[in-house]
Design a binder for these strands. Sequence first.
RNA 1: GGCGCGGUGGCAGAAUGGCGAUGUAGAGGACUGCAAAUCCUCGAAUGCCGGUUCGAUUCCGGCCCGUGCCUCCA
Length: 460
Amino acid sequence: MSDLTIHNTLSRQKEKFEPIDPTHIGMYVCGPTVYDFAHLGNARPVVVFDTLYRLLKRRYPRVTYVRNITDIDDKIIAKAKNSGEAIDTITQRTTQAFHEDMAALNTLPPDIEPLCTQHIPQMIALIGTLIAKGFAYAAKGHVLFNVPSMKNYGELSRRSHDELEAGARVEIAPYKKDPSDFVLWKPSAKDQPGWDSPWGRGRPGWHIECSAMAKQHLGVTFDIHGGGLDLIFPHHENEIAQSRCAHDGAPLANYWMHNGFLTVNNDKMSKSLKNFYTVRELLATAPGEALRLALLSGHYRQPIDFSIESLQNAKATLDKWYGALRSTAAARAESAPPPPALEDALSDDLNIPLAIAHIHEIVSALNRAAAPEEQAPLRAQLLASGEALGFLQQSPEAWFRWCPATCDGPTDAEIETQIAARLAARQAKNYPESDRIRDSLAAQGVILEDGAGGTTWRRG
RNA sequence: GGCGCGGUGGCAGAAUGGCGAUGUAGAGGACUGCAAAUCCUCGAAUGCCGGUUCGAUUCCGGCCCGUGCCUCCA
């Protein structure tokens, strides 16, 4: 197996991955703020880092994957105020929906999924350390990180302090010592959730949670930190500042990985632009696996322009893959590891499009193979390759019977009855009648395929 | 303004200092009662201009076009 290389945002280059401890890899990925359904852009890093997680698990004996849930945030507070719902109700419901949506995309759950609200003491301790070491200060109920106090601030995003000031576009709070200082702790009004702290009742700023939870679950320095491109600045930059300054300069993570954006009609998909699709609404129109393939069809660092057409293409591709499995179902596949070509593609900074091309080649070979003993090893390769990328884990029958949420066509049993009637007509050489049945089903979204082993069907 | 990313067949999308994958769409054929699926065959691409080089899509420079970040963001 070839070396694993990773594009490290710190160096803007591909680097050979050298784990801190080859027997135990640590990975942290920023998770959702739970105030609303996940949109497809939120799902991209989850799917991408799930694929990396699967690769790491095959290459190393143990991997700890941590993905947090941000369950305290001003957007959540605002949502609760507007809707009249309790914050806990919103965060728990949204977390559950997130879990359901991500499971539908065939993502494995992380090993640890910490909640911010359960790590307040760790955040307070970290803030205390930063104050004690002279990197943070309290002012008017806030605690702020003093950016000029850190010499190397800006290494990840490659921004100098001067550039930050030049680009400042927000109103600068009067209690800040420096315009680029950011909040570690802020006061809560009586009607806002808050926790007692040495600086009064308040709540954490956005960035401190990840520093505190990463330290708690992965230690001071760990291997890989992932997230979307837009988190590089300010979120990850500030995480680095907090953690390094609290830990005498020790790195937070050795490798920083960032996925590219998802666009819709070439515009960034975002809640503020209101041009987003939620995962949930798309799952009503297409199988989760097709959504996953659409999200993985481009390299993880490149932008992906999502469209309904790209989703349909992904579904058609999976139809072909599952079709190969269905037509060779008689050849029992033993289990096998994914082929080296696929592992090499994934090990080269997660070249998923190339890995998918290898799957196409296996499918073609499987379709060409006539003898069961020839098919069996190819099936094994196909199933293993699919699992490596989070595909092909259901039965072909289940795949082809998938129905959208609005499914109002014939039931499985009705289809079987029609197929039997058509078979009788065919045997009587009553082709007008058999074609009428087939056309009738086709009009209802059911496609029949006559094969050597009988007639199969699928919902299109 | 500062920092950054990208431009490859109709579309999607890899790779590469020398034969430019893969999928899809398209054309033809095999198979089929007819289809569908599958298989076979075929046509089809490196934004523009320079430079380095025996050779550039790849490296360098310029230009054009698109796009992201610069304290809500995956």
